[in-house]
Simulated assay, not measured.
Amino acid sequence: MNTAELLADAFGRVQEDVHGAVDRLTADELAEPVEPGANTVAWLVWHLTRVQDDHVAEVAGREQVWTADGWHGRLGLPFRPAATGFGHGPQQVAQVRVDDPALLTGYFDAVHAATLEYVKGLRNADLDRIVDERWDPPVSLGARLVSVINDDTQHAGQAAFIRGVLLRRR
C-alpha cells in the first residue's frame, strides 16, 4: 500500500462513518440535541465536512467545495462562507438544519471526492512538505492530513453515538 492508497482508505472510512451516522434519520432528528445545548448530528457532520474542505483545499491550493460548487447556498446556513464551526456555541449548533439529509451527505461526498482527487497523487516525500508555519514546530502535510482524519473520525463517532440515542428514543 502506498501513501495515496493509505490516505484514500482512511478518508473512505470516514465517508462510511458519516453515511452511517446520517442513515435513516429525519431532518428533525439530525437537528435534535440529546440534551439542551449539545451538538447535533447535523452540526457534527457539517463541521467535520467544513474542516476537511477547508484544510484540504488549503494544502491543495484550490477553492473550497463549499463555495466553488455552491454548497454554501444550497445548505442555506446563516453563517459567513468562511465559517467551519470552530468556536460555535449552542445557538450556532441549533442553526444547522437541513430539510433533506441528502444535502448533508451530498456536501460531504463532494468534499470526499475532492479530497481523493488530491491525495491520489501524493507520494511519501510530499508528506514532509511544510504547510503551516504558524505552529512550533511547523506543520507538515502528513501531520495536517492525519489531523483532519483524526478530527473527522472523532466527530463521525460522536454523530454515530447521537444517532444511536435518537433511534432508541423512537
Rank of each mutant, 00 (worst) to 15 (best):
M1D: 12
N2L: 09
N2F: 08
T3N: 09
T3M: 08
A4F: 09
A4C: 12
E5L: 06
L6I: 14
G12R: 10
G12I: 10
R13C: 00
R13M: 05
V14H: 07
Q15I: 01
Q15N: 15
Q15H: 14
E16L: 15
E16A: 15
H19Y: 06
V22K: 07
R24N: 13
A27S: 14
D28S: 12
D28Q: 13
E35P: 02
P36D: 13
G37F: 02
A38D: 06
N39D: 10
N39K: 11
A42L: 00
A42Y: 00
L44R: 12
W46I: 03
H47W: 06
H47R: 10
V51A: 10
D53W: 05
D53C: 07
D54G: 11
E58A: 15
A60Q: 11
E63A: 15
Q64T: 15
Q64D: 08
A68N: 14
G70F: 11
H72K: 12
R74K: 06
L75C: 03
G76W: 00
P78Q: 07
F79C: 00
P81M: 06
T84M: 01
G87Q: 07
G87I: 09
P90T: 04
Q91D: 13
V93S: 00
V93T: 10
R97Y: 03
D100L: 02
P101Q: 12
L103T: 03
L103E: 09
T105A: 01
T105G: 03
G106R: 03
F108D: 05
F108T: 04
D109H: 04
A113R: 15
A113M: 13
A114T: 08
L116K: 12
K120Q: 15
N124L: 15
A125G: 05
A125M: 07
L127Y: 08
V131D: 11
D132Y: 13
R134F: 07
W135C: 04
D136V: 13
D136I: 09
P138Q: 09
R144C: 12
L145C: 00
L145I: 00
V146I: 13
S147L: 06
I149D: 01
N150R: 01
D151K: 06
D151F: 08
T153D: 00
Q154L: 06
H155M: 06
H155C: 04
Q158P: 01
Q158N: 12
A159L: 11
I162K: 03
R163A: 08
G164N: 03
L167F: 02
